[in-house]
């Protein structure tokens, strides 16, 4: 059976990025909720902080796209 290595590479680029993003967001999110309980005005800063790790999976997605081209 012939395996296309580029497909595996693309899957790894998105998959590892997604796992890393999930790990980071889980930790940031739980800390953010704890902080928000004490200081509600941090809401926007917390939303931004939670969104920051998404860069990893988005860049992974872009790399996957470039690999598959």
């Amino acid at each position: 059976m012939e395996i296309d290595v580029t497909v595996i590479g693309a899957a790894l680029a998105v998959g590892i990025g997604a796992l890393a993003t999930g790990y980071a967001q889980a930790h940031i999110g739980s800390a953010a909720v704890a902080a928000l309980v004490e200081k509600k005005e941090l809401l926007v800063a917390m939303i931004v902080l939670v969104a920051i790790p998404e860069t990893m999976v988005i860049l992974g997605f872009v790399i996957a796209y470039l690999i598959l081209q």
């Binding site: 998404e54 860049l59 872009v62």
Partner: peptide
């Protein structure tokens, strides 16, 4: 450079 690459989310989210 990373700031500019960050704008790729404008494409990625739309495709998703």
């Amino acid at each position: 450079v990373s700031n500019i690459l960050s704008y790729t989310r404008l494409m990625a989210l739309g495709l998703a």
